[in-house]
Amino acid sequence: MAIKFQRVPSAQPSVAFAARALAIVLALGVAGLVLAARGNAPVELAWEVLSSTFGSSFGLEDVGLLVTPLILTGLSVWVALRIGAWNIGAEGQFYAGAFSATAVALFIPGPTWLILPVMFTAGALGGLLWILVPTLARAYADVSELITTLLLNFVATLMVYYVATGPWLDPSGHALATTARLPHDVPEFWGIVHYGFPLAILLTFVIAGLLNYTRWGYEVRIAGSNPSAALYAGMPFRRRLIVILLMSGAIAGIAGMLEVAGTVHRLQGGISNNFGYLGIMVAVLARGSSLGVLAGAALMGVILNSGIILQTQGITVSAVLAITGLILFFTAIGNELAHYRITRTEPAAS
C-alpha cells in the first residue's frame, strides 16, 4: 500500500477553511515564539490586540474604515483574475480615482448631494482611464498587462505628488504638502466609518451576481479558465477582456474616490497606503470566491489594524511587517495544500 498526494482542481470549502485557519494559528505561533525570544510577552500582546480590535467600537470602526478600500482594490484585482488578467495597477488606478474626484470637488461648485455622485463617477472614470492603455495594449497587441499596469502606478503616484505639492497645494502648511480640504464628505454612518463600507460590500455582491448569474459572466469565466475553448465556442474573448479590465480599473478608482472623500478629505502623496498592492493579496487570498474578497479584506484589515496596536506596545514597524508577511505566507501555503488530498493506492491485485 502506498500513500499518494493527489491534486484536485478546486479545494473543498471546508478543507480550504480549515487549512487557512490552521495556517493563521501556526503563523501567530511562530510570531509569538519570535516575540518571546525578543523578550516580549506574546500572550498579553495577543490579548491586547484582540481586546483593542474587537472589544471596543473604537477598534471595530478602525477595521471598518480599513476594510473599505481593501474590499474595493481586492475586488478590482479579483475581477481581472476572472478572465485570467493580472491588474497589478490598482494602486495607480486608486490614485487616478482620488485625483479625478479631488479635481471635481475643488473646482466644480455645487451642493454636496449633487457633487458627491459626480465625484463618484469621476473617480470611477479616472481609474478606468488609467487602465485604458494597458487594456487596449493587451487586447490588440498582446502586451502583458502585468507590466504596463505596474509601471503606470509610479506615474500616478508622482502625478498626485506633483499636484499636491504644486498647483493644488494648500499653502496653509502641513508637514506633508496636501491640497485644501475637500468641501464634500461621504457621510458617516457608524462612528468614523462612512457609507463607502456598505457600498463596497454591495458592489462586491453586484459583481459576483453578474459573473455567476448572467451569460456574460459565464463567458468571462470560461474565457478565464480556457481562452482557446472560449474562442472555439465563439465567445468574444477580446470584448469580454476589455470590459473586465476597464471595470477592474473603475473599481480601484472608486476606492481612491472613497478614500479621499470619506477618510482623508485631502489629496496628498501616500494617500493610497499601499491599498492597491494589498488588493493583490486580498484577491489571492480570496481565490475564486467573491465572498472570499470580503473575507480576505476583513483579514487584511484586522492584520493591518493589529499592526498599529502592536506598534503602540513597543513592537517596531519592521517586526510588525514581518508578522504580517508570516501570516500571509502561511496562508498562501495553506491555500495550496488544501488542494491536495491524500489517497491510498492499493497495489493491483494479482
Binding site: 483593542s52 471596543s56 473604537f58 477598534g59 478602525d62 474604515l65 480599513l66 502641513h174 508637514a175 506633508l176 468614523i192 478614500e259 477618510t263 482623508v264 496628498q268 501616500g270 494617500i271 497606503n273 489594524n305 498599529i308 496596536i309 506598534q311 503602540t312
Partner: peptide, 15 residues
C-alpha cells in the same frame, strides 16, 4: 506615515 494610518495610531493611543 502621513496617511489615515496616522489617525488609526492616534485613536489607538486614546483607546
Amino acid at each position: 506615515p502621513y496617511s489615515a494610518d496616522a489617525t488609526r495610531t492616534f485613536r489607538q493611543f486614546v483607546s
